[in-house]
Design a protein around this nucleic acid. Structure first.
Length: 584
DNA sequence: CAACGGACTTAGGATTAAGAAC
DNA sequence: GTTCTTAATCCTAAGTCCGTTG
């Protein structure tokens, strides 16, 4: 049912492909830093499989226990107040607090919730509560709304106190010791119980995600470390010491029966090294990509169907970023469209049920092959029926060590950023204009990768505010222009030093205002262009940070303008090694 | 050799913190 | 200061990829 999300790169931008150049060195393992800042990224390399020699931590922090509702807050069934057992009440609050969410209007969500809720009820409750339609959670809902509001109006001191408590918690549970270094943990809290919120029309939405207990949790730490203590009166499911994995604790969640892990924060050394390695693999692809492309083009005409399918799939992975679980119903072929020949129209839901829609002109053999692959098939059939992700990746491994479908995405994203930065940045621009160029380059990648977001509910309003500001600024500019004209006439008449300085002042004022106006309208453009595009995913996962850092250095843009504090910590490895001459 | 499970990465929405406007 | 907006961070679902298993 899943469509591997590879069909991404927009046709227009795939043409921005790079001139071949020898891949640069500096592979993890044979590491060297261009700028030696500390030893953190320079320690000797372990065997790749082994992730640590020492690991010590406090175990996960468990979600706080359920606090029963106060007496004044009541649940009603069929109009009559009803006191629920603690277990049933807890699950009722999960639903009640979501009352203003769209989920609670969905039939599947309601059905799953009600089904699981009834399992938590006492026999007597189950006897009474038979229809969700007769349940009234409004008091419960109001209680949580009020509670959220109350949090907002706390005094400065109270807020400070809460902040300190959170900080203490972070200090106690949020760090581990890994090979002698204190490292930040990513998710040290267990996920609280609640109702499952799947994306798209997930069949399990609304099901009860049950509370994680110490008895569910497997602890992973070094044998000789201080073993974390389970909460009083409880025990761990298991304590093990597996240094070939990165996780500190794990449990099986109750919805999909999959495993959830406590792992390190991206700013940790181990995660940083993995990210570095990922980008080095992508950089290595540069040296192979021409050869790979000519080979798959040749394979479009292969005698063997499997090889042909693989070649077309690979072409999509490379050119568009997608894939082998594409179904017939996802694709439409147009002999001619938009003034182009051989146009392929893609329309399907990808990861997180985000729609991918694109029309791409393709080479004739690709088009002919698609016709062939789709012939006599039902809409639900796979286009690449002879292909699996495993066989495809196996082939990729033969082409280049470490090569998988994912690497193409990283490669194309990073290459595009570098190209776009080169094309858009002008050295003489202001910092603000350079940042706009950066955002545009980033946006080009986000569009390629189909990174979308829902238009925020406040978009129209904030756009309106910006437009108002622009209007005000325009009036100021007009006024300043009139004053400048007046001053010029004045100076012509007087010709003295005083009127000259007034004239200069007016000129500068107009210039400043015009600059501000330009910046505001640029912001408006930026905002509009960003309406449905999310930059953060590509920025965090696909763009080699060394490209951005080198760009900052080359064009004298403070790196804080590009990366927030957390992002700078995540990319500490790149900050330590990238000089202004870094080339991806 | 398909399917399954484990480990790890990627993803957008929700929540919270910071910043700007009043 | 207080309030409203915007930006940053948090959260956890949903992918990819690989190794195992029946």
């Amino acid at each position: 049912m899943r469509v591997v999300r590879l069909l991404r790169l927009r046709a227009a931008l795939t043409l921005l492909r790079e001139v071949p150049r020898p891949a640069s060195r500096g592979v993890p393992g044979s590491r060297r830093t261009q700028k030696g800042s500390g030893t953190r990224w320079e320690e000797e390399k372990r065997e790749d499989r082994v992730k640590w020699r020492q690991l010590e931590h406090k175990g996960p922090y468990f979600a706080p226990p359920y606090e029963p509702l106060p007496d004044g807050v009541c649940f009603f069934y069929d109009g009559k107040p009803m006191r629920l057992s603690v277990k049933a009440e807890e699950v009722a609050t999960f639903y009640g607090r979501m009352l203003d969410h769209e989920y609670t209007t969905k039939e599947v969500f309601r059905k799953n919730f009600f089904n699981d809720w009834r399992k938590e009820m006492t026999v007597e409750e189950r006897e009474v509560i038979k229809s969700l339609d007769k349940c009234d959670f409004t008091e419960i809902h109001r209680y949580f709304v009020d509670k959220a509001a109350a949090r907002k109006v706390l005094t400065r001191e109270e807020k400070q106190k809460l902040k300190e408590e959170a900080e203490n918690l972070q200090q106690e549970f949020g760090y581990c010791i890994l090979d002698g270094h204190r490292e930040k943990i990513g998710n040290f809290k267990t996920e609280p119980p609640g109702l499952f919120r799947g994306r798209g029309d997930h069949p399990k939405m609304g099901m009860l995600k049950r509370r994680v207990m110490p008895e569910d949790v497997v602890i992973n730490c070094s044998r000789d470390s201080k073993i974390p203590k389970p909460p009083a009166g409880h025990q761990w499911k298991e304590v093990r010491s597996d240094n070939t994995v990165m996780w500190l604790a794990a449990w099986t969640e109750s919805i999909q029966n999959s495993i959830k892990y406590v792992m390190l924060n991206p700013c940790s050394k181990l995660k940083g090294e993995k990210a570095w390695q990922k980008f080095e693999t992508a950089r290595r692809l540069r040296g192979f990509v021409d050869e790979i492309r000519s080979q798959y083009q040749a394979d479009w005409k292969s005698q063997e169907m499997k090889t042909r399918q693989r070649a077309v799939a690979l072409y999509f992975i490379d050119k568009l970023a997608g894939c082998c679980s594409l179904r017939v119903e996802h694709v439409q072929l147009h002999p001619e469209a938009d003034g182009c020949q051989h146009v392929v129209e893609f329309d399907f839901l990808g990861k997180d049920s985000i729609r991918y829609y694109n029309r791409v002109p393709v080479e004739k053999p690709v088009y002919k092959n698609l016709q062939l692959f789709m012939k006599n098939k039902d809409p639900q059939d796979d286009i690449f029926d002879r292909l699996t992700t495993t066989s495809l990746n196996k082939h990729l491994h033969e082409l280049m060590d470490g090569l998988t479908a994912k690497v193409f995405r990283t490669y194309n994203a990073s290459v595009t950023l570098q190209e776009q930065l080169r094309a858009l940045t002008r050295a003489e621009d202001s910092i603000a204009a350079k940042i706009l160029s950066y955002n545009r380059a980033n946006r080009a990648v986000a569009i390629l990768c189909n990174h979308q977001r829902a238009t925020s509910s406040t978009f129209e309003k904030s756009m309106q505010n910006l437009q108002t500001k622009i209007q005000v600024k325009k009036e100021q500019v007009a006024e300043a222009r009139a004053e400048l004209r007046k001053a010029r006439a004045e100076h012509k008449a007087q010709g003295d030093g005083k009127s000259r300085s007034v004239l200069e002042k007016k000129r500068r004022l107009l210039e400043k205002l015009q600059e501000q106006l330009a910046w505001l309208s640029v912001q408006a453009t930026d905002k509009e262009e960003n309406k449905q595009v999310a930059l953060s995913t590509s920025k965090l996962n696909y763009l080699d940070p060394r490209i951005s850092i080198a760009w900052c250095k080359r064009f004298r843009v403070p790196v804080e303008k590009i990366y927030s504090k957390t992002q700078r910590e995540r990319f500490a490895w790149a900050l330590a090694m990238a000089g202004e001459d870094f080339e991806f």
